[in-house]
């Protein structure tokens, strides 16, 4: 069973130890997805599987067989990219592909009414697109340059503008 990466069918690696992250970067040369901690703590390796954000470092490539993987290369061009630049949502840029993949999926989650830990009323059918909500929902993506304020601004701008 093949893995579909940004619309192209790819055979999974023979060695079951290969992570989705390593397959993307080392086998397919899709180096937009970044290696940060390689232990599920930083979010730099975030990609989408069947539209949901996951960590590619803790996903074995074999687990993605039969599924659709979307990386930052597959999202490009995305309105979040321009918003991150405009709002200074980055400094060194290393965490940015993961931030944008995570944010794109997060906007869909909020629009689908998925609650977060800071959502006051869990039984409500819709949740607000507030600064606190975005900060909580993006907590899986660290930025060591400290560009979080700009990241939240960029996400709120795109979400409010309904440009996605």
């Amino acid at each position: 069973m093949d893995i579909t990466v940004n619309g192209t069918a790819v055979a999974p690696p023979d060695d079951a130890r290969v992570s989705l992250l390593d397959m993307l970067r080392d086998h397919l040369h899709l180096t937009g997805t970044k290696v940060g901690c390689n232990q599920g703590a930083c979010g730099a390796c975030t990609v989408l599987i069947d539209g949901r954000r996951v960590l590619s470092c803790l996903t074995l490539a074999a687990q993605a067989a039969g599924r659709e993987v979307t990386t930052i290369e597959g999202l490009d061009p995305h309105p979040l990219q321009a918003a991150f630049v405009e709002r200074d949502g980055l400094q060194c840029g290393y965490c940015t592909p993961g931030q944008i993949c995570a944010a794109a999926a997060m906007i869909d989650e909020v629009r689908a009414g998925v609650p977060s830990y800071v959502t006051a009323d869990l039984s409500a059918e819709s949740v607000p697109f507030s600064r606190d909500e975005v900060r909580e929902r993006m907590s899986g993506n660290l930025c060591r340059c400290g560009a979080h304020n700009g990241i939240v601004d960029a996400i709120l701008e795109v979400a409010d503008g309904s440009t996605v």
């Binding site: 954000r53 996951v54 803790l58 999926a105 997060m106 609650p115 869990l122 899986g140």
Partner: peptide
């Protein structure tokens, strides 16, 4: 709701998806 809140308190959105 206690269960939903507890799950949402754990890990990150990416990890909860997995």
């Amino acid at each position: 709701p206690m269960l939903a809140r507890a799950i949402l308190a754990g890990a990150s959105a990416q990890i909860r998806n997995m």
